[in-house]
Write a protein that binds this DNA or RNA. Structure first.
Lengths: 199, 199
DNA sequence: GTCTATAGTGCGATAGAC
DNA sequence: GTCTATCGCACTATAGAC
C-alpha cells in the first residue's frame, strides 16, 4: 500500500463539488474540502492555484477535444466547415452518462458570480486556442476570430440546451441544430417563422 | 466648502487606472488607491465591492448604449437587423477621444488574468441583457441567444481592432465591417480570398 | 509546514448636510 | 432631529512567501 492514496486531485474535485452543491461555494472553505478527503488546506492549494480552479481543472483535455475535431478536417477546409468539425469534436466530451453530473456542476456555477467569471474566462481562453489553430491553417483575421468565437458561442448555447430539463437529444445533434440556426440567422431570416412574432 | 469632495468614485477609478498602469494590478493595494485620493481602504470597498470592480463600474450605461441602438429598430425588424442596430448603439460609446484611454485600460487588463476574467464575465452579462431585450421583441431561442452572442462577439473583435496600433477608422465603420465578415463566414466562404490559403 | 500580507466583511462611531 | 459618507477596528479566508 502506498503512503498516499493516488488521485488526490480527483478526490478533492469530487468532494468539492459535493460540498459546493450542498452548502454553496462561498460557505465552503478550502480547508473543509481538504479535510473531507484527509488532506490539509495547504495541499489543496498545491493542487489548485485557487479555490475556483477545483471546478475547472481539466481545461487542457477539454480544449483538446475541440482541436481534435478541427484536425479531422481536410487541409483546405473553409472556416465554416472547421467550426462544424470543431463542434463535433466537442460533442464527444458529453455523452449521456455525463449529463447529470454536468447539471449538478452547472447549478453550482449558476449560483455564484465568481464561478461564472471563471467559466466565462475559460470559454474565452478556449476561443484564443481555436484562433491559434485557425491561424495555423492559414485562416486570417477577422475570419479566424469570428469562426473561433462562433464555435464557442454555439457550443455554449448547445450545452445549456443539452442539460436543460427533459432534453433527450445528443450533444452532437444539438450542436448541429444550433449551428444551422446561426447560419439561418445571419442569412437575414430565422427558420420556423420565428422572426418578430410575439409569443 | 463641503467636508467631502464629490465624485469620490470617479476619483478612485482614475487613481486606480494610473496606479495599475504604472505598477501592475496585483502590486497595487486597495489601500494605496484610497490613499492616493485621500480616503481609506474601507471607503474604497464601500464604493467597489471588490478591487477589480474599480475598472469595470459603469456597466449599466455601457449596456444601455447597446439597448438604445436596438430600440431604434422598427418593431418587426428581423434579428440580424437588430444585431446591426445594437452595434451601432455600442459604437457611440467609443469616439476618437476615448481611444487612447481605452488602450491604457486594455493594456492593464491584458496583463492580469483576474481582470480578464472580470471582462469576460461583463461581456457575458451583456449578452444576457441583450437576450432579454430580444425576447421582449418576440424573438425566440435559440435565435435570440445566437443574435445576442453574435453582437457581443462582433463588438469584442471590433473593439480590439479599434484600439490596435495605427487603426484610424471609427468604431462604427469597424463594427459594420466585422459584422459583414461574419455574414460571409457563415455563408461558407470568406471574402477577399482568405479561405485556406497559407500565409 | 508555518507565517504573513491582502482582500473583503460587519459593526459602531463620527461629522457634516439638511 | 434624520440622512449619508467616511472612518476605525476587529475579524476570516485566501493565497503566496519562506
Amino acid at each position: 500500500m502506498a503512503r498516499w492514496k493516488p488521485g488526490a486531485k480527483d478526490r478533492l474535485q469530487e468532494a468539492a463539488l459535493t460540498l459546493f452543491a450542498a452548502n454553496g461555494f462561498e460557505q465552503t472553505t478550502a480547508a473543509e474540502i481538504a479535510q473531507a478527503v484527509g488532506l490539509t488546506e495547504r495541499t489543496f492549494f498545491r493542487h489548485f492555484s485557487d479555490k475556483r480552479e477545483v471546478l475547472f481543472y481539466g481545461q487542457a483535455s477539454f480544449e483538446q477535444a475541440f482541436l481534435d475535431g478541427m484536425a479531422a478536417a481536410p487541409p483546405q477546409a473553409p472556416p465554416w466547415d472547421l467550426v462544424a468539425r470543431t463542434l463535433q469534436g466537442a460533442a464527444t466530451l458529453f455523452p449521456k452518462e455525463r449529463r447529470e453530473h454536468s447539471r449538478v456542476r452547472q447549478r453550482v456555477i449558476d449560483r455564484n458570480p465568481a464561478l461564472q467569471e471563471r467559466e466565462a474566462h475559460k470559454m474565452s481562453t478556449l476561443a484564443v486556442t481555436l484562433v491559434d489553430a485557425l491561424h495555423q491553417r492559414g485562416i486570417a483575421d477577422p475570419a479566424a476570430s469570428l469562426a473561433a468565437e462562433s464555435a464557442t458561442t454555439v457550443f455554449g448555447i448547445a450545452f445549456l440546451q443539452w442539460i436543460s430539463a427533459g432534453e433527450e437529444r445528443s450533444m452532437s445533434t444539438i450542436t448541429a441544430d444550433v449551428l444551422s440556426e446561426l447560419q439561418s440567422l445571419t442569412a437575414g431570416a430565422s427558420p420556423s417563422g420565428r422572426v418578430a412574432k410575439h409569443p
